[in-house]
Simulated scan of single mutants.
Amino acid sequence: MDRLDELQVLIAVVETGSLRQAALRLRRSPPAITRALAQLEDRLSRQLVERTTRKLSITEAGRDAYEQALALTRQWQDLAAQPLAAPVRGVVRITAPPVFGQLFLGAAIDGFLARWPDAQAEILLEDRYLDFIEYGLDAAVRLGRLPDSGLRTRKVGEVRWIVVASPSYLLARGRPGRPDDVFAHQIIAESGRSGAPTWDFRDTEPMPLQPHWMSNDIEMQRQAARAGHGLARFLNYQVGEDLRDGRLLRVLQDYEPAPLPVQIVTSGARHADGKVQAIATHLADHLRPILARTS
């Protein structure tokens, strides 16, 4: 196993939080993952991961190494794409979650088409994961941890679930101090899912709720929250402008669950064509600074 492979093992272990899940992602055996991690630790002369029979945790040195490994693998991916920088032609088909795409993909695609005027773009905004082959996709922006699928992924940032409310609502009803306090509040939640809506908080079980106000549309939920109808939960980028302008305030920040990775996903083909590499690199370069500011 070469040194780049060792870095990819470290990245997979940190992002999945499990040697077994890292092995599934990289399509290797758990013993091979353990050996590669041990070799990297020996090479760096520091412990990157603390292992017990029941738990795996990343050391501070491991976190530092992870960040450097991400930077090095990005440089390698960019370098590997350069020899294929032939003119991009034809339709480039991309999918992303609706609000994410509305907020961030327009400017990214404008820049891509300015650089490659012989290309055309088609954007499919869907919350569900579209099949690459069925929909003829070149790239996808996907949020959260992904099942092992043989697709190639490139992490570009993180987002997180947050709970917010309007200043007028909090003035009238008070600010919740702990997750259990939400049961005493009016709740705005997403509809259209089976079973009672649930919210997750750090170190707690999912909490079933009885919402006061429901909609299957994010914009309707935002309007309800701004109008003071209760507490609402969004991904942080969905209400970034409201938070900056003070129309919504963040609550229960100390109890927010772990952030979710944002990844550019492309076909698992060993040698992707120039069009796929070009759009994946362009999206990654565009989204990384934006997501760094919104985290």
Rank of each mutant, 00 (worst) to 15 (best):
D2G: 14
D2F: 04
L7D: 14
L7N: 12
Q8Y: 02
V9K: 00
L10G: 02
I11Q: 00
A12P: 02
A12F: 05
E15P: 00
E15Y: 01
R20K: 12
L26H: 04
P31T: 11
A32H: 12
L37T: 02
E41M: 00
Q47E: 08
L56Q: 03
S57T: 11
S57K: 00
E60M: 04
A61H: 05
D64C: 00
Y66D: 02
E67P: 01
Q68V: 11
L70K: 11
L72S: 14
D78F: 12
L79P: 08
P87L: 03
R89H: 15
G90W: 11
P98T: 11
Q102K: 13
G106A: 09
I109W: 02
I109P: 06
L113G: 01
Q120L: 09
L124Y: 09
Y129H: 14
D131R: 13
F132G: 04
I133Y: 14
V141H: 06
R142T: 09
L146S: 05
S149K: 10
T153S: 11
E158K: 04
V164K: 08
A165I: 10
S166R: 10
S168D: 09
Y169E: 10
L171Q: 15
A172G: 07
R175F: 03
R178M: 07
R178I: 08
F183L: 14
F183W: 15
Q186E: 14
Q186M: 01
E190D: 04
G192L: 13
R193D: 08
A196Y: 11
A196Q: 14
T198G: 06
T198E: 15
R202G: 00
T204H: 15
T204S: 11
E205N: 10
L209P: 06
L209G: 05
Q210H: 15
H212F: 14
W213K: 04
S215P: 04
S215N: 12
E219L: 10
E219P: 00
Q223I: 06
A227C: 07
G228Q: 07
G230E: 08
G230D: 10
L235Y: 06
N236M: 00
Y237T: 06
E241C: 01
D242Q: 15
R244W: 07
L249G: 03
Q253M: 03
Y255A: 06
A258T: 12
P261S: 05
P261Y: 05
R270Q: 13
D273S: 01
G274A: 12
V276G: 00
T281W: 03
D285K: 05
A292F: 06
A292W: 10
T294Y: 11
S295T: 13
